[in-house]
Simulated assay, not measured.
Amino acid sequence: MLYRHGDVLVQRVPALPAAHPRPGATLARGEVTGHSHRFRDPAGVQLYTAGAETYVQVTAPSADLIHEEHATITLPQGTYRVWMQREYSPEAIRRVLD
């Protein structure tokens, strides 16, 4: 299952790899707008990093991913890999700016 929340992609994965807990409930902050992709209830999620990868475990029955400019996405309980969408230009592959 793959979810798109603006420039943030979220994919359900079968298990969490060896990872370190990360504080907070914000997946990404917009460089242009200052808005953030974050979970409405931080108590229902735990973020992790594994190298350059980000993961989230939804420990509540579900968790709402919110942002000022995007519709809310409700993720069911489970483990997810999170990454930022990239775009191609002849000069470079770069992160999409929110």
Rank of each mutant, 00 (worst) to 15 (best):
H70N: 15
V45W: 00
A19D: 00
Q11T: 15
L65N: 09
R94K: 10
T26A: 12
E69N: 15
A63T: 11
S89H: 05
Y55I: 08
Y80R: 03
P90M: 00
Q85M: 10
Y48S: 04
G78Q: 09
T26Y: 02
S62G: 08
Q11E: 15
L2R: 15
P21T: 14
H20N: 13
Y55S: 04
R38Y: 11
V45I: 13
A25Q: 10
L75Q: 05
Q77T: 12
G34S: 04
R38M: 05
V58Q: 07
V96C: 09
Q85F: 01
R22H: 05
I93G: 02
I93S: 01
V58C: 11
H70Q: 14
A15P: 02
G44D: 04
Q46C: 03
E87V: 05
E87N: 04
D41P: 08
R38Q: 14
P17M: 01
H5N: 08
D41H: 07
A18C: 02
R86H: 06
F39S: 01
T59K: 15
V13T: 10
T54I: 08
T79V: 15
P76K: 09
E53S: 14
A50P: 05
M1H: 14
S36K: 03
G24I: 13
P90T: 07
T59Q: 11
Q57F: 00
G30T: 08
P14R: 14
V56E: 01
D7T: 12
A25N: 13
